[in-house]
């Protein structure tokens, strides 16, 4: 792999706080190595800003290995940038060329208000989980782990849905700012396992109601969420969610 250095223009969204209107600002960075990660490039810019007595750019990040879900960023019009199945922290600068201009924005959704610059508040996701994204089992009540064999295909499918990192890229990618992919991943994960069965109906009702209450939009099946998802959560989960919801509605005793 050939390494190279590049000079870039960054067009970054700056917003002091939730109330501030915000706007783009341009910055130049020099001698960026193609081996750097995208966030390391922002680290370089921030060091430069601090040196010059300016306010560094706020962005969320933590594990920097693509699993905690804390990093976000809309990069050149795409959540987490242009690489497929990738988070911003794992995007590396070899994806860019010398002289390029990169536009960096926060997630944009009514349910994700901006905290500062590129940082948004995603606590709506936690509240959706609170509404039913769990199996009600207190510590100490469990039977032996192997007492209930689970079909491997079902276990694998549950795992594939459970890989969601809760980053919010699906919402950011959706023109309606819908949280259906996030929600459906959790509903699928738990509905595919026998342990999740007893609460299957109430879970899907309550989680959908909470999603609506948080102000996320409706799903119109454009598939933008699936394309942007760093963990390649399948849109088939949304179909399963709809099926679960329909089944729960038809069989509800009321």
């Amino acid at each position: 792999m050939q390494h190279y250095n590049m000079n870039l223009t960054l067009k970054v969204w700056r917003q002091k706080n939730k109330e501030d209107k915000g706007g783009f600002q341009n910055y130049q960075v020099k001698d960026i190595s193609s081996e750097m990660s995208f966030l390391e490039m922002l680290d370089v810019l921030n060091e430069q800003l601090i040196r010059d007595g300016q306010d560094p750019i706020a962005f969320d990040h933590d594990c920097r290995e693509g699993i905690c879900g804390m990093c976000s960023l809309y990069i050149n019009g795409k959540p987490h940038g242009d690489w497929k199945a990738n988070t911003t922290c794992q995007l590396h600068m070899r994806a860019f060329k010398d002289g390029e201009t990169i536009v960096i924005e926060p997630w944009r959704a009514g349910a994700f208000p901006v905290v500062k610059d590129l940082v948004v508040d995603r606590s709506a996701f936690d509240r959706i989980i609170q509404a039913g994204g769990f199996i009600s089992v207190n510590t100490g009540n469990a039977v032996d782990g192997n007492s209930l064999p689970i079909n491997k295909d079902a276990a694998d499918a549950a795992f594939a849905a459970a890989m969601c990192i809760g980053c919010g890229a699906c919402v950011a990618a959706c023109k309606n700012a819908s949280a259906m992919l996030f929600l459906s991943a959790k509903v699928s994960h738990l509905a595919l396992l026998p342990q999740g069965d007893p609460e299957r109906k109430s879970r899907v009702f309550n989680m959908v109601a909470q999603m609506d209450k948080e102000g996320f939009g409706a799903c119109t099946n454009t598939g933008a969420c699936e394309a942007a998802c760093p963990k390649e959560i399948s849109i088939a989960n949304i179909a399963r969610l709809n099926k679960e919801y329909l089944f729960a509605s038809i069989t509800a005793e009321k």
């Binding site: 769990f134 199996i135 089992v137 510590t139 100490g140 009540n141 469990a142 039977v143 032996d144 782990g145 192997n146 209930l148 064999p149 689970i150 079909n151 491997k152 276990a155 694998d156 549950a158 795992f159 459970a162 994960h189 738990l190 396992l193 342990q195 999740g196």
Partner: peptide, 17 residues
């Protein structure tokens, strides 16, 4: 046991164990 009961999708063999 606790994690399985919570729905942690551990890797399984074809027999379901």
């Amino acid at each position: 046991d606790q994690c399985v009961a919570q729905g942690v999708p551990f890797a399984r063999e074809y027999g379901g164990l």
